[in-house]
Design a protein around this nucleic acid. Structure first.
Lengths: 233, 233
DNA sequence: GGTTGCCGTTAAGAAACAATAAAGGCCGTG
DNA sequence: CACGGCCTTTATTGTTTCTTAACGGCAACC
């Protein structure tokens, strides 16, 4: 049962840090690409189509925030930012620009790898979601071919946004999705702070899908984190 | 079912102490390497790739803390510090630099060997857990992909801070983490003196996870140092 | 036997977060 | 242009989580 090996682009100017990253990743069977400057990183991230980008914040030429922005103009590749101590204040900026996660140097190998796995899995889930079919969770059935939803046996009409939200949730059913992740997938990367949208539409979905909308069985909130579509059981 | 014999690097200047360590280990089938100075120890730890390093704190040339730091720049090999009385204050420093555990001289052979086994096992677990995404310790299971925690078979709801704390502990299960290390990882670098936070949240976690919260089996305190997530056995 | 240091526990107020209702804007269609 | 459906926005209320400070127990040490 081998995972198909993923290609990871490492954007890091300092040779030693780069070596540490590469060794850590290669041991797990990942294939590594390199870029030593922000400019190289941007073009490699777009042209060579890696499955993941590890981006150091302390690059010599372009600011890491700017690198993220430029990559995001052309690609949805997951970006994990690696930053040294004393650069905490960039964390929020860079996440706002569309980075997916954040790891502090020095990091424990296990932690880095965990985040890499999570980021890759997202990506794969989003891609394979395009192959259609019907998904069932409890008495909720979504037919992606016909774009039809039934709850408790009877058909439910959903607006486009409601449908996209449900699709995102049901594709990752069982797992907690952060508010940011949901907003990016449903409304787009620039909307990932519009928590209000998400709340309003969660209410609408619950109203249409839940047996008792005030006591959600399916669409449950994890305070401070996000939402998840609970699987039966 | 033979354990694959592990290679242990002993860094110790005093001949008698070295002999005691070596005999204790050889009887259990471990292969021993030696280094008599800190400098030798650093290069041997990196180049000869032992499975474990036993590091004496009272070396003639380089401080044990410095040895740990230099090894950690290049290797994730488990390090167990062996320290004489009167060096207690170094324990925390050396753990902060990335050592895995410490044993006080004079030590009982059984205790040393138990910690050696734990450190070796931890290393192997960290390697094989990297394709799982879920980590199990005793009847505690953390699924990092789903962000789900179960204790004794039933799901447990954790708040964001509780979850981060458990994640930090379980990623380093078996080894001692200093209060400062934990605080930095869970609350951030600026909170590394807020011991109160840690105590409050340790209680909350124990309450939710331990069979008998007043007699912790998993989250155990190391007085004056920090906490450890004890592995079963 | 008191003092000190460290740990566990508790509770209450502050802050962050979530659910809901309702109003206004946009846009296509009749 | 009036209407209906959908999306966005704001305000209000209610809930969960975090922070903070104080207290009590226990052991080590003088």
């Amino acid at each position: 049962m081998n995972e198909p090996s993923a290609v990871v682009l490492i954007v890091e100017d300092e040779p030693h840090a780069r070596a540490v990253l590469q060794v850590t990743l290669k041991q797990q069977g990942y294939v590594c690409l390199h870029a030593a400057t922000g400019a190289e990183g941007v073009s490699a991230a777009i042209e060579r189509e890696p499955d993941l980008v590890l981006l150091d914040l302390g690059l010599p030429d372009i600011d890491g925030v700017e690198v993220t922005r430029r990559v995001r103009e052309r690609s949805a590749v997951p970006i994990i930012v690696v930053s040294a101590r004393g650069q905490e204040e960039h964390k929020i900026e860079v996440l706002d620009e569309g980075a997916d996660d954040y790891v502090m140097k020095p990091f424990v190998a296990g932690e880095l790898l965990a985040r890499v796995r999570v980021a890759l899995r997202h990506n794969r889930a989003a891609e394979s979601a395009s192959d259609a079919g019907t998904v069932q969770v409890g008495d909720l059935v979504v037919d992606f071919d016909l774009r039809r939803v039934t709850a408790g046996g009877s058909e439910v009409h959903l607006t486009p946004t409601e449908y996209r939200l449900l699709a995102v949730m049901i594709r990752s059913s069982g797992r907690v999705l952060s508010n940011r992740q949901i907003l990016r997938q449903v409304w787009g990367p620039r909307y990932d702070e519009q928590l209000g949208y998400l709340r309003v539409y969660m209410k609408k979905l619950r109203y249409k899908l839940e047996p008792d909308p005030t006591r959600p069985r399916y669409l449950v909130n994890e305070p401070g984190v996000g939402y998840r579509l609970r699987m039966p059981g």
